[in-house]
Amino acid sequence: MSDPSERIEVTTDRDVVRVRQLVRTVAAALKLSLVDQTKIVTAASELARNTLVYGGGGYAEVSRPEGDHRTGIRIVFGDDGPGIADLELALTDGYTTGGGMGLGLSGARRLVDEFDIVTAPGQGTTITVVKWRR
């Protein structure tokens, strides 16, 4: 059975920091390796920032899924923003709309074990990531 989730509203830069701190705390409590802790914290930081900057704010919900004799950390990021018009392009390495390095979505996807995104223009975006303990 999964532990209860913890939800953080993401509306300011301070909330992005709170998401990162919560993810670090949960990953350490689950005894993820230091490398895997760093990967999930980095992915969470990128996705929380995207929720704020591109989605206009939203939420991050952190939980501890269990199943198939394994445990891990699941984070769901959601917003009611403009959505992603061209998801394939947005997931391309180097693509950016914000003048950054363009590693946000594609980089986050590489850092986690499971990555799911649901989006449509005008419908917002929901991204779910999971990192399993090895």
Results as ranks from 00 to 15, higher is better:
A29H: 04
G94W: 06
V129S: 02
V35L: 10
L105Y: 14
R134V: 15
R24A: 14
T92H: 06
G72Y: 04
T12Q: 11
T71G: 13
G83A: 08
G99Q: 03
H69N: 15
T96F: 09
L22V: 04
L91T: 07
T12D: 15
A44D: 05
K131N: 04
G107H: 08
D3E: 15
R7W: 02
R20M: 10
P121E: 13
G81A: 08
M101Q: 15
V23E: 01
R49P: 00
E66H: 10
N50F: 04
I75P: 00
R18N: 10
V10A: 05
G98K: 08
E88R: 15
D36K: 10
Q37V: 12
S45L: 12
A90Q: 00
D13N: 11
E46D: 09
D68Q: 13
I84P: 05
V112N: 06
A90L: 08
A120W: 07
A29D: 12
M1F: 14
P82A: 08
S5K: 12
D68H: 13
P65Y: 05
T97Q: 10
A48M: 09
G94P: 03
E9N: 11
G58Q: 04
M101P: 10
I8N: 03
G124L: 07
G122M: 07
T97G: 12
T71I: 14
G122K: 09
A29V: 01
G58T: 06
L52W: 03
T38R: 07
A90F: 08
D68L: 14
G56P: 00
G107C: 09
D116V: 14
E61Y: 12
K131T: 07
A108M: 07
W132S: 04
R14F: 09
G98P: 03
L105T: 09
L22G: 01
G78M: 06
Y59L: 11
V62W: 10
D13P: 06
E66M: 14
L30A: 07
T96G: 06
P4V: 14
G67I: 00
Q37L: 06
Q21T: 13
P121Y: 07
G99F: 07
V53T: 13
G99A: 06
G100M: 04
T128N: 01
L105Q: 04
S5L: 12
G102C: 05
T25G: 10
T51I: 03
P65A: 10
T119D: 06
V118T: 15
